[in-house]
Design a binder for these strands. Structure first.
Lengths: 235, 235
DNA sequence: TCGGTATGTAAACAGGTATTGACTTGAGGC
DNA sequence: GCCTCAAGTCAATACCTGTTTACATACCGA
């Protein structure tokens, strides 16, 4: 297990090229990376992105402890040692995945919502669409505990941040006591999504695993509406 | 890793004393076990039960891969080798946990429900009460994938069985096309429970982790009602 | 053309894992 | 009182894990 102070080292400096920018949380980075992609077949940024992509899929479906670095490297088509070269450790790679997920959730929820109906619709499609891709869908499964204290702290922060975003979109005001229950209700909505995604992807349990998006849309909308749009004290 | 055909061996024959009976799924077994408990301080059934109890807790909270057999043995207060003696392997112990969970869910759902309201109330209390005990609450977390194909198959079967039980309690008839959506809705209710339990126990995410039972009861009842009691085609 | 450097590779390391086998301890039958 | 057999212990096994080290290869500026 790595030291508790993964602050500054040689490997970190080498990883900065993309990891630090990713931590900054700008999607513009991706464009720049794609531009640099044309440089040659040996591109550190490209392999780092491939590693993160493969890692997210594995971490989401199999959990942190169950996925091996060799699996990730094989999925990404690169050598195992590059994980430690670019991310310092398996935990570092996990944190990078977390950062990216946090950023994606941010950009998704910060998009101006015209109303609670649109928010609900977006939640439904988020929980239902494309269960096998590496879309933001599976990223919720990153909430699985990793056994590492630092990564778990980030994970918790990400979740709570997401909760507040959703609650705000549903009309929650931090200083208004009347809307306080909305925070809890927003998290229950997230729990609902979490459960559905889990049963559809990680465990392939019927019938929800093979249910179509249209079949799921109606009951899920009902649930989210019951949680966010009615039954609580409005302003 | 163990062979794919754990059919007959010496260890299995020794384990039969309790494992096979547990597989039969009769609660009467427990009474007999408690009777035999008075035989002496060295009772195989007692240690087996202790192992299963400790294993369920560990598997539920930490996941399959993350828990070590030494941890389980230490929790149960017995020697590590006894796991292999009585359950043939770590996987065997996991399967035994699964069987027992399946049985408990059965006895819980097969208890005559006076109506959908009672079923909902029972679901709420199941998802909310006593998050730290080894009650049926955490057992839902056994749905975590174990990496083993056989255990995962049992896991899936258990879930689907539980789904059908719940759907039946909500008025579902296998031959009635009008009530078909109830099966999916029942599983969504289970997904909701799964998400809540996960956020409350494994990941300790605020505010749902520290929310009281009464705070959670209202919105959860709303969700379960929306899923099971209204909005679908009644008979 | 020639180093120097970033990138990738292969083999090995130390630690932990589940599992196995031989051994010891205890209780009951003759 | 010995003998048998189940119940439990201990140490060694082979394997897999994440990580590191030393080495190869491609790119790029001088």
């Amino acid at each position: 297990m790595a030291d508790q102070t993964p602050g500054t080292s040689r490997a970190v400096l080498e990883a900065d090229e993309a990891a630090a920018r990713a931590a900054a949380g700008v999607t513009e980075v991706d464009a720049r990376a794609d531009a640099e992609l044309t440089r040659s077949g040996r591109d550190a940024v490209v392999t780092q992105r491939a590693l993160v992509r493969a890692a997210r899929r594995r971490f989401a479906t199999d959990g942190y402890r169950a996925t091996t670095v060799r699996q990730i490297a094989a999925d990404a088509g690169v050598n195992v040692a590059l994980i430690n070269r670019y991310f310092m450790s398996k935990e570092g790679l996990f944190e990078a995945c977390m950062m990216r997920t946090s950023d994606e959730l941010d950009t998704q929820t910060e998009a101006r919502a015209s109303g609670i109906a649109e928010v609900i619709e977006r939640l439904v499609s988020h929980a239902v669409d494309s269960p096998n891709g590496d879309d933001p869908l599976q990223l919720l499964l990153l909430l699985r505990s990793s056994g590492d204290e630092n990564a778990d702290r980030i994970r918790r922060k990400t979740m709570e941040h997401f909760t507040e975003r959703l609650a705000t979109a549903a009309g929650w005001h931090a200083d208004d006591a009347a809307t306080a229950p909305l925070l809890l209700r927003a998290q229950l909505a997230i729990s609902m999504m979490l459960g559905v995604v889990m049963l559809r992807t990680s465990a392939a349990v019927q019938p929800v695993a093979s249910a179509t998006a249209t079949e799921l849309a109606a009951p899920l909308s009902q649930v989210f509406t019951a949680l966010l749009a009615e039954g609580h004290a409005p302003e």
